[in-house]
Design a protein around this nucleic acid. Structure first.
Lengths: 225, 225
DNA sequence: TTCGACAAAATCGTTGACGATCTTTCCAGC
DNA sequence: GCTGGAAAGATCGTCAACGATTTTGTCGAA
């Protein structure tokens, strides 16, 4: 009944890949599946289009937007500079409580990696980035990054699986947290930029064998027409 | 009749400040003023909300979002790093034709400044930034920057009026164009970042005496309730 | 068999009306 | 004169139905 919750559910379904890329989003079907009126579906699709998660064509309906590898790289580059800015600002205004929170997240990620649970580590990874964003207090950067991140969640789960990325990721995150906690803005920004540009480069090397699309295709509706 | 044109008209009205910040956007009134159905107004408002140009509250309607000085600074900072990225990429893939276009825009801006036409120079300024963005070929950065710029257009017209900013702006743009045209990515990014951070700092210094809001208040509906 | 035209189905965009919710106004009581 | 509350007005959110457009499927001819 609460349309807001339904909207979040739909958004989650797309972001997490439960609805495959290029799958058609028929207004009536979505309404039935998520228990919302057609009008509500309409507004949801418009919002999601603006967020870059779906594409709508006149009289042809909406489809889940397929993020190409090329575009994923662009998004990671944009995130690199924006999160770099956030890291800088976080380093400028860091306090003891915040530094402690960052170190705690980093420690958890280290434990998960040593335990070999890469998927959980990937979640912890996202957590760390979110915490840093929050500490930066940069509302505009936060908003942009959140929007960008949601478009590449399906990639996130994979990049850490690439050979060598797990260890590198931990190393890079450690550098970021240290710089921020120590209040060194230039260093924090550089570390964050380097980290995300490395991720972008990993994607660029076609290090995702076969691509993400085959892997997640057909989860719900079996892909495109 | 063409809802798309009406949408652009409404958007323009907000971006250019013909509709004052905090002014209420009653769906019926907007529909009458821009000749569009209430449903079309609804979708337009949802899109504009997602773009950050209006805010909508349940059962209370939409209002033009007021961009505070603080937020304008944040936006300029975000633009600084994103346009820095774009400048870097433009420098990496610059060709003779593109370099020539950049130099032409710069020359025009110089002429306008020497002629003392600051407002026209401000437009040329925006033109130069847009050209650089186009040359970068970075679709994601383009999209983000366009969205950010539209939120601060009212500020744009003012910053160049500040004492010393006109000359500084020309100097900074010259550095950017030279670095891009010469194909030096690091330098291009640094120059662009420096330029926009300088603008941000100019705003930060409260160098907009009395703020922009009094100046543009009451243009249409006399401000907020 | 393949191609093109035509009809049928599916889906979206729009309209008008109705109920829900918020804001404002007005009046009684202190 | 001021405060509290109730009624009126304004506006938004939702729903059902209709028209418009695209897509699909069928049929006949080359």
């Amino acid at each position: 009944m609460p349309t807001d919750a339904s909207f979040e559910a739909l958004r989650e379904a797309i972001v997490r890949g439960y609805i495959a890329p290029d799958a058609r989003l028929v207004e009536a079907d979505i309404g039935a599946a998520f228990d919302m009126s057609r009008g509500a579906v309409r507004t949801a699709l418009i919002r999601l289009e603006q967020e870059g998660l779906v594409v709508r064509e006149p009289h042809r309906g909406a489809r889940v937007r397929r993020v190409t590898d090329e575009e994923a790289i662009e998004i990671l580059q944009a995130r690199a500079v924006l999160e770099g800015l956030a890291a800088r600002q976080a380093a400028e205004r860091i306090e003891d409580a915040g530094a402690e929170r960052l170190r705690a997240r980093l420690a958890r990620q280290r434990e998960l990696l040593e335990a070999g649970d890469l998927l959980a580590a990937s979640d912890a990874n996202a957590d760390l980035h979110a915490t840093l964003l929050e500490l930066s207090g940069h509302a505009t950067a936060c908003r942009l990054i959140r929007s960008l991140s949601s478009q590449t969640v399906r990639y996130q789960y994979r990049t850490i699986l690439l050979p060598g990325r797990a260890a590198a990721s931990l190393r890079e995150h450690t550098a970021i947290v240290e710089a921020v906690a120590a209040g060194r803005p230039d260093e924090a920004e550089a570390a964050m930029r380097a980290h995300l540009f490395n991720v972008a480069r990993a994607v660029q090397r076609r290090a995702l064998p076969g691509g993400i699309d085959q892997a997640s295709r057909g989860v719900l509706e079996g892909g495109a027409r």
